[in-house]
């Protein structure tokens, strides 16, 4: 057998095979990445024009894409209901009602609800501040909110999301969200509403991140997701015409479960404070929350 001749034939055969495999890999990747390609400036302009026809403008800058992300495993944060009640009501903790596993404390002036899924809701009873009253100053509200967070022990991992003054209602709202490994968990929040009389309402749901899980997947560009969403203009909140920011983070409903996976989302936040959450894998809207 002429070994050198055989080698030449094998080299040619394997070269052809490698070229074939290389082309196959390339075309596969092209198909895969096309869905997540960075949009061109023309595509962004096109989207902005489409938004304009709906009367929607983009006040911030367009984030074009983010690094691939996996799911985030989370669980509900256990809330010691009686301890929270003592902090709210002091020594005179009122009797509780327990419908559906929830604990409701009320002394007629303040009501506190704590669920098994770790959700806290507090509101002060009584007539609302008359319209036109002055909304509390942002700096003052921030200090008061941070005091509450400090007492709750939520400050590590909490990041100020926004402060919004509603002069018409005489209220100022402030929202803190949770940050894990540099990414916001939008489902975790501590939300306050203050009037000139002090804290009127407080909502808290705070998750415990357990770590990333599953494979990292490429994220669909928010430009592509929003362009797709424009096919369903009803999804846009009627009175929200200014997009303030689009950021990537994690989102999930709150479940009364042992643990669950939160999905990466693009949060489209409007100037009014309302947000749209777009699944960053599929571009489909997840949920609209205040």
């Amino acid at each position: 057998m002429d070994w050198s001749r055989a080698k030449v034939i094998l080299i040619l055969a394997f070269s052809l095979l490698n070229i074939f495999l290389g082309v196959l890999t390339y075309s596969n990747n092209q198909r895969y990445y096309e869905r997540w390609a960075v949009p061109t400036a023309a595509e962004v302009r096109n989207l902005e024009n489409q938004l304009k026809t709906l009367g929607v403008t983009m006040a911030g800058t367009w984030p074009l894409r983010a690094a691939p992300l996996p799911f985030l495993l989370v669980k509900a944060s256990p809330v010691p209901a009686d301890e929270v009640a003592r902090k709210v009501f002091g020594l005179n903790v009122p009797g509780i009602k327990q419908p559906n596993g929830e604990k409701i404390y009320s002394d007629g002036q303040q009501t506190l609800l704590v669920t098994e899924a770790g959700i806290i809701r507090y509101h002060r009873e009584g007539p609302a501040k008359p319209a036109g009253g002055k909304a509390p100053e942002k700096g003052q509200v921030k200090t008061e909110a941070e005091t509450v967070l400090q007492r709750r022990g939520l400050l590590p991992g909490a990041r100020l999301d926004y402060i919004h003054q509603d002069e018409e209602r005489g209220r100022t709202t402030v929202r803190y969200s949770q940050v894990y490994e540099g990414l916001e968990i939008f489902s975790s929040e501590a939300w306050f509403e203050f009037s000139a009389n002090g804290l009127e309402e407080y909502r808290e749901r705070w998750l415990v991140p357990l770590g990333f899980t599953g494979e990292k997947r490429l994220l669909v560009s928010p430009v592509v997701a929003l362009a797709r969403l424009l096919q369903r203009p009803d999804v846009f909140p009627g009175d929200d015409k200014v997009i303030e920011s689009i950021t990537v983070g994690y989102y999930s409903a709150i479940y009364d479960a042992r643990q669950w996976e939160a999905t990466p989302v693009w949060r489209v936040r409007f100037k009014s404070g309302k947000s749209l959450y777009l699944n960053a894998y599929t571009g489909e809207p997840e949920k609209e929350t205040p």
Binding site: F71, S252, D256, A257, R258, W260, T263, T282, E286
Partner: peptide, 20 residues
């Protein structure tokens, strides 16, 4: 299926959803 996220419920059931 890789888009479906998992919720492990307290009774041992597992819930999957892809948002739809």
């Amino acid at each position: 299926p890789s888009l479906a996220r998992k919720v492990e419920e307290r009774d041992g059931a597992v819930f999957y959803t892809d948002g739809v």
